[in-house]
């Protein structure tokens, strides 16, 4: 997994609430293996007009936000389906951080296992940042994971909470397979105990 420490990048606002993972990547692209570049599937239908042409109004299609690596979204971002390809689509399109007042729980977990940092900030802070991004398209945000802060385009600094375990894995670029292997004896002991009660 790619490590995440600091990021200073263009941020794109997606102010709507409840942007679901079906929106982020439609179901018809789910049969692709991970090796396939998922970037082209990101908001595949949402960013197109009914005739299939790119919608010039969609934020990700606007020249100012082509280089965006941070998405700042409305509440309950990436709710719905557990599809990890929602993270892959964002990651392959260059995104490494998503900021929102709240996330779908499964997406949040999938993100931290793929080098995409989910940051929860208070709704009024997110609203203010979105207003700044819309007022100055192409504005940048700085994310400091060790310090757990987000610096908005106006220079204001906002602390955020993150699970210490997820933080450690993101900082080091570790996945949890190696960590779990260290607890082999505990798992084996548990299995002997548990197996007696849960025969199949």
């Amino acid at each position: 997994m790619e490590a995440f420490r600091h990021l200073d990048a263009v941020a794109v606002p997606l102010p709507q609430p409840n942007i679901d993972t079906d929106r982020i990547i439609p179901a018809r692209f789910l049969s692709r293996p991970r090796e396939v570049d998922h970037g082209d599937f990101l908001f595949h239908d949402a960013r197109r007009l009914p005739d299939g042409a790119q919608d010039p109004e969609f934020p990700l299609n606007r020249p100012d936000w082509q280089a965006a690596r941070i998405v700042v979204a409305g509440r309950n971002f990436a709710c719905g389906s557990s599809r990890e390809s929602a993270v892959w689509a964002l990651f392959d399109a260059g995104f490494r951080c998503a900021i929102a007042p709240s996330f779908g729980d499964i997406f949040r977990s999938n993100g931290t296992k793929n080098g995409l940092l989910p940051v929860v900030l208070p709704a009024d802070v997110v609203e203010a940042i979105i207003a700044q991004l819309e007022a100055t398209p192409g504005a940048r945000i700085a994310v400091d994971l060790p310090a757990q802060t987000v610096t908005a385009p106006d220079g204001s600094v906002h602390p955020f909470e993150i699970d210490p375990f997820a933080k450690h894995c993101l900082l080091e670029g570790l996945d949890d397979f190696g960590l779990t292997a260290r607890y082999e004896d505990d798992i084996a002991a548990f299995e002997r105990r548990y197996g007696r009660e849960n025969r199949l």
Partner: peptide, 16 residues
């Protein structure tokens, strides 16, 4: 759970 977690459960029968 997501795919990475599915792989973790396959390998270890556990989940963090």
């Amino acid at each position: 759970i997501g795919s990475t977690e599915v792989a973790h459960v396959l390998a270890t029968q556990t989940l963090w």
